[in-house]
């Protein structure tokens, strides 16, 4: 079946039984419907989103799986980080509802047509969506919590390593 898709789309083989297809975001629903009708990639396993902050884009990978569960196809769309919005896939795959809800909360992506985008894991969250790259979790933690004394993490250990090496050398030379 993958041969049929290869005729129509530019499909790259990334690994054994793992394929990748890059498309424009406005053709997403059209292409995914045609893939699910014309091939055996009928189910959606995951919607994976990556934040490429240096390119100002979100890359969303819709990972499709065959009916036989033997091949995976990653369909990648790239959308702008600023006005991030995509059509929902609720009509094609019912399980997309919860995945889109998750991504909406973690990245702030708006899925047009999905009206169940309410709180998923977070409660009363007022900051920027946490999985965006500009959200600094360490700064947030330092602002909201104080650590118990004795847990001074994330220190620069290089000075200590240098000191210990010098000490070891000294004791060796002394002998």
């Amino acid at each position: 079946m993958i041969e049929f898709l290869k005729k129509h789309y530019e499909i790259v083989e990334k690994a054994p039984r793992l394929y990748k297809l890059q498309i424009e975001s406005d053709k997403l629903v059209e292409i995914l419907s045609s893939v699910s009708i014309n091939s055996n990639f009928i189910t959606l396993s995951q919607i994976a989103c990556t934040d490429w902050i240096e390119d100002e884009v979100f890359a969303l990978n819709y990972i499709l799986t065959t009916k036989e569960r033997d091949k995976n196809l990653m369909v990648e769309v790239r959308i702008s980080r600023v006005h991030c919005s995509l059509p929902t896939l609720l009509n094609l795959y019912p399980q997309a509802q919860v995945m889109e809800r998750d991504l909406h909360e973690m990245y702030g992506i708006n899925f047009r047509g999905n009206d169940t985008l309410y709180d998923f894991a977070l409660e009363n969250w007022n900051e920027i969506p946490p999985l965006r790259r500009e959200f600094d979790t360490l700064a947030y933690v330092n602002e909201h919590f104080d650590f118990r004394i004795g847990r001074e993490d994330n220190k620069d250990v290089k000075a200590e390593v240098k000191r210990r090496k010098a000490q070891a050398k000294e004791s060796k030379d002394g002998k």
Binding site: L122, P130, F135, T137, V141, F145, D146, F147, R148, D153
Partner: peptide, 16 residues
Amino acid sequence: TINGGMYWDSYNTIKK
């Protein structure tokens, strides 16, 4: 529960 443990830099868990 003592000091955050593995999740000491997580935004959603309490530390003490």
